[in-house]
Amino acid sequence: MNYVNYGLHLLILFDIYLIVALSLNVIIGYVGLLTLAHAAYFGIGAYTYALTTLLLDWGFIPAALLAIVVSVIFSMMLSVASWRFRGDFFVLISLAIQVMIFTVLKNWHDTSQPIGTWGNMTNGDFGLIDVPSPNLFGYIFDDKISVAILYSAFALGAVLISRVLLESPWGRMLRALRDDELAARGLGKNVRAAKVWAVGVGCGLAGFAGAMLSSYINFVNPTIADISEATLLLSMIIIGGVGNAFRGPFFGALLLILIPEGLRFVDMPITLAAEMRLMIYGFLLLAFMHWRPQGVAGSYRME
């Protein structure tokens, strides 16, 4: 039974990170914008869900929808910046957005005031506890089997949405603007609107995945949006590969889950295993940039 629970736990995490990978794939693989801010949107979704369910007693669907809406609104910071900047400048702007959102999540607290008030919105490093499990149509998904089924359905939905969007004429236009923005503009395409939509879709999906994570682990704290998490998400998608609607994100999420789990079977202390996990990611990033810039199953070469 323990093995079943363990397997279900991995499946749930895989579902969540598959959605994050799909969302990052839209921005990096289709629009060609290397962003370090994705963890921040993952965090915004998680906090929005946690606050609305804890303070306003909202159900899963309205709270998750609000998480998507808030993430999409904040994504304008990134997409409007992409109108003017690409390459190193865009990465810098995404980094600035990442640090500022993380700082707000970490510092918007005051121990003398109750959680959710203007003076203590996020509870700082202590985070928000007892975030409710998913609750749909009166049924509470608080055991691993039901959560795994629900989240697998969400992941499947996200795969379908991603596939339909990215293989439509809109997806082809995104690829065109990634490869030659000037030519796309010359052909009369509204590249600014396309970027706003694409970044919005990517960040909205990340926000939804954040809501799923906080409702699964019943907890959220600022580490969900820190720079290490941002680096990890970027590593996941680059190693898995970008530029196609499913294969690259699938392998990226799979590796993100399997590498730490594989290390569990090696006889080493937990803290050392965490360092080794990141070191393996570092080696993989380096190796892929030299010998396989398109990642395990990507279609777009990052070189």
């Binding site: 290397l34 390459g87 590593s235 360092e275 990141l278 070191m279 990611y281 570092g282 940039m289 990052m302």
Partner: peptide, 23 residues
Amino acid sequence: GSFAAHFVSSLGLYIIVVQFVAV
């Protein structure tokens, strides 16, 4: 190589050296 290739590989090097120091 593009800016992205340099950036990502440098990020990889950063992670390797920092984790090595931590280990």
